[in-house]
Design a binder for these strands. Structure first.
Lengths: 218, 218, 218, 218
DNA sequence: TATGAATGAGCTTTCATTCAT
DNA sequence: GATGAATGAAAGCTCATTCAT
């Protein structure tokens, strides 16, 4: 029946509504956000949330997963086998920077994410998905590095996985630093000076990538 | 009066007792630790804590500051003007790794630190101290890099401050990744595999430093 | 129409299915059992229950009524006018013990029954039925006692109704005590000793009946 | 210090205030009473209750214990070794009836008591006290019966413990029946007739005791 | 200075009941 | 008749902070 079909779509839409609401609220308040605020923003009763998610934790990680999915899709779009390995890496790096600019709250959730205290009861399905998606991202990078080593543009002694981690973690570390400088209220009082004030942050990130790329080169 | 002096010392000691207790409790429970647990561990009444610290937040950041002081002192000890710039940087890098190994909870507080929800009411004094100490650390690194540029071992176009941030943020990012792999319960379910399993983490860090150094080199 | 007839039977069967399910669930969880569990066990939707019963309370008392019906039927079967009054009473006593053994959860519902908090909204029909059935049971006993008085085997000054209540309430009290000793978790901690440990409970009940009978005798 | 002494008394008084409030509220609402109602009646904040009792359950059983203590004291006062065994038993029986009349809600809590769902976490101390007090009561009765057997007024084949249980459980069962008839809302709708209407309940209890005593006699 | 009793807002989760389809 | 999604009140317990002593 088309009606069954429609009901299913309505339910799915409701799920998305809740995720949308939760996203906004978690963005501004973190995991400590109140469930009632989420319900209110979703224009639903508190109890209704529990028809779609088992717990606040589950909801939180589901939001996280959506954030990761966005990045994953951006990576997929950036994949281009005609590019030189180094250029492909630069592309991924740009994608990451772009994600950082457009989805800052997701970047924070993913990179500096607050750990809900007990993760014991989060549905294993979601944990799996999170894990798989994370690995998927790194695989894109690792493939480009492998190709670079094979083609002789990257240093032959490099272990591709290690190099991937080094590159990615470093870029993440830089972005985190930029985020901190741009936004962290720790530095915000007017009589304090953020350590990087006066530094062009865009340039900093580019520089980092160049520097790391140089390090990888044969 | 010597008596006044003694009273002052007693007060200072009390402050330290509280910090010692808070440190232990925050380490095991994070910011969500209960003030009553801290009071109990310090063998003081809850109310007494408030005679020495304005709020739980203040206490938390004071603990943080002590953690930063430890690292600062390790840096001071590692400073050796007879070393070549690259070797001096390696020394700092080793110090950081050593801090990571010996004071992991501090590393986490400092790098991935949980944000107490409202930082509005933390005393400005502490924020200043935190800020100054952080800058102090980076200054050690920046000086070595400046020297390296001057002496021609590092690339002449480098901006010393930028390079410092890149180096330091990258190493921090790597350590964060290592910490995640060693400890994060997200990866602990037996059917998940931590992304770096099989990777020698010590080696990874060394490799990173080498790679970054290569990037800096002239 | 025979079809109307059939529909009626189907409805009646549905009612019974719900009662069967509710019985099992109330037995294991008491009145705090969840309606959704009952619906699930009955393989019906939650809302459907409300087509057959006005409220959870109503359902609870309907289950109770079935339990009472079982006992009533056992009494009817035990009725035998050829027996001597004392032997007839013993028969009823045995029936009660047998009910206690075979339908313990019903015994508890009936005797120590949990009171749903508000009984205001239970349908009067059910209350009537419960009341009538209870009286019916006692009538069996009362008749035997009347006969005993008439035949001179029981004390002539006895008021039959009073004697009935005394006999029945006493036996009920004994059974309740036995139930408590066999099951009450209050006594279960290993360092506590149930007051009747070491007492043969079957014997206790028999003894009680004998003692009460002696009390009734002329 | 007298001040310490006074503080202790104040704390003890506060505990009693809470118990007084809880008693009233539990009497009218049973275990499902709201903690906030208890707090309100005690003119204290909800959190304060938890400074004196670990949980609602603990509070409930503490109230229960007070009720049992009252009965225990009445028994102690009724103990009189100059009485004949039968008269001593009658005295205890009267005490029980008196308790039933003056402390009906306690009688219900004790005899038909609602079981808080989880009794697992009630402090063992309280469970012990409850258990001990209960046993203590029965001991009074058992002693009188032993003496009666020894002195030849009760049947020589009686097992004193068994006889105690039989006597006590029977009387309890009678009182429960009386309570039900006097108060149970199940019978209250005007068009129902309580089974014992027209029966003099005081007389019923006396009759029961006499009947049971006859049963015990040599 | 030190205490620790008291506060009370705050929060997640449950579940009987309703009602649009 | 049957469904089951939605509701929303309800409730026990926690804990940072205050303040009278």
């Amino acid at each position: 029946m088309g009606s069954q079909e429609r009901i299913k779509r309505v339910k799915e839409q409701r799920r998305i509504d809740i995720l949308d609401a939760a996203e906004k609220v978690f963005f501004s308040r973190g995991f400590d956000a109140k469930l009632s605020d989420i319900a209110e923003k979703a224009e639903l009763a508190k109890g209704t949330i529990y028809l779609y998610f088992n717990s606040k934790e589950d909801l939180y990680f589901s939001v996280l997963l959506r954030g990761l999915d966005i990045l994953a899709e951006m990576f997929e779009n950036a994949f281009d086998e005609t590019l030189q390995p180094a250029e492909q890496l630069r592309e991924y790096s740009n994608v990451y920077a772009s994600y950082f600019r457009k989805h800052r709250p997701f970047f924070r959730m993913l990179y500096r994410y607050e750990h809900p205290k007990i993760r014991t009861q989060v549905s294993p399905t979601i944990l799996h998905q999170l894990s798989n998606r994370s690995k998927g991202l790194l695989t894109f990078v690792a493939e480009a590095i492998k190709r670079g080593i094979r083609e002789g543009v990257f240093h032959p002694d490099l272990d591709p996985l290690q190099a991937t981690i080094v590159l990615w973690s470093s870029l993440s570390g830089i972005l985190r630093e930029i985020d901190l400088n741009e936004n962290d209220p720790l530095w915000s009082p007017s009589d304090l000076q953020a350590p990087l004030s006066g530094v062009n942050l865009e340039e900093l990130y580019t520089l980092s990538f160049d520097l790391l790329l140089r390090g990888l080169s044969a």
